[in-house]
């Protein structure tokens, strides 16, 4: 049985500015918020632009703010997002430049991720019967940007490196069992890096992939603090 859902979608066009468009959608509760958006595009408004590809939380392209909360609409079922007759307010991610409608510019984000250089694929943990270098797995972070959208510090400090990149730096140290390059260290260990986070934990709340960026930022702080103390003690000794 289909539900009647009202989608209120924030629209933006470079020449026309912003507005909110309302669409009535008939959709099964087991389908996703993203399916509803695609249905609007297919049957009601071909001018609507939005990002999507894998529809199962792997590609990280479809992130949106739905009813005020960052989600991947591809894994948000209608029945978990609202009720029959309910409304879904859909906006693009916060803290990213909006290109049009629900499409944001990810380039600045990927520049930071590339600078940190977190591997994209790594060896899996030891699993029964595995040859050591035969099996690989993707890193958990799908680089969707939800954590940056939810972060109150990113909202006020455009130079802040942001939760995804800081979590990536911690991951680089973990997988390489070593240190960060001087360039990455300089980006991480400054007032717009590691020490800018004020531990709101919003990033970990919205992360769809269990990366726990806030936990990793705290771990990185402990690591850096220990490193500073060690240097200090070493200098005195």
């Amino acid at each position: 049985m289909s539900w009647q859902i009202t989608y209120k979608i924030k629209r933006y066009h470079p020449d026309q500015g912003s507005r909110v468009d309302t669409f009535q959608v008939e959709i099964e509760p087991e389908r996703t918020v993203l399916d509803g958006i695609e249905l609007i595009w297919a049957k009601q408004d071909r001018t609507l632009v939005f990002r999507h590809a894998c529809h199962h939380a792997s590609c990280g392209s479809c992130g949106l703010v739905v009813n005020g909360v960052e989600v991947l609409p591809c894994i948000k079922l209608i029945q978990d997002a609202t009720t029959d007759g309910g409304t879904l307010e859909v906006e693009p991610l916060r803290n990213f430049p909006v290109v049009a409608d629900l499409v944001v510019d990810m380039a600045p984000f990927f520049e930071r991720m590339q600078l940190i250089g977190m591997p994209i694929v790594g060896p899996t943990g030891p699993l029964p019967g595995q040859e050591p270098d035969e099996y690989t797995a993707f890193e958990n972070c799908i680089e969707c940007g939800l954590c940056l959208s939810a972060c109150p510090v990113v909202a006020t400090d455009s130079k802040y490196l942001g939760p995804a990149a800081l979590a990536a730096a911690e991951r680089v140290i973990e997988v390489s069992e070593g240190r960060l390059s001087d360039e990455v260290l300089a980006a991480v260990d400054n007032e717009h890096g590691l020490w800018r986070c004020h531990a709101a934990f919003e990033c970990s709340e919205v992360c769809p992939s269990n990366v726990d960026p806030a936990g990793r930022i705290m771990a990185l702080r402990r690591r850096m603090t220990f490193e500073r103390l060690r240097r200090l003690v070493g200098a005195k000794g």
């Binding site: 939005f50 990002r51 999507h52 590809a53 590609c59 392209s61 499409v103």
Partner: peptide, 8 residues
């Protein structure tokens, strides 16, 4: 979007 059809 890139890969928004069959491939994605």
């Amino acid at each position: 979007e890139i890969a928004s059809g069959t491939t994605g």
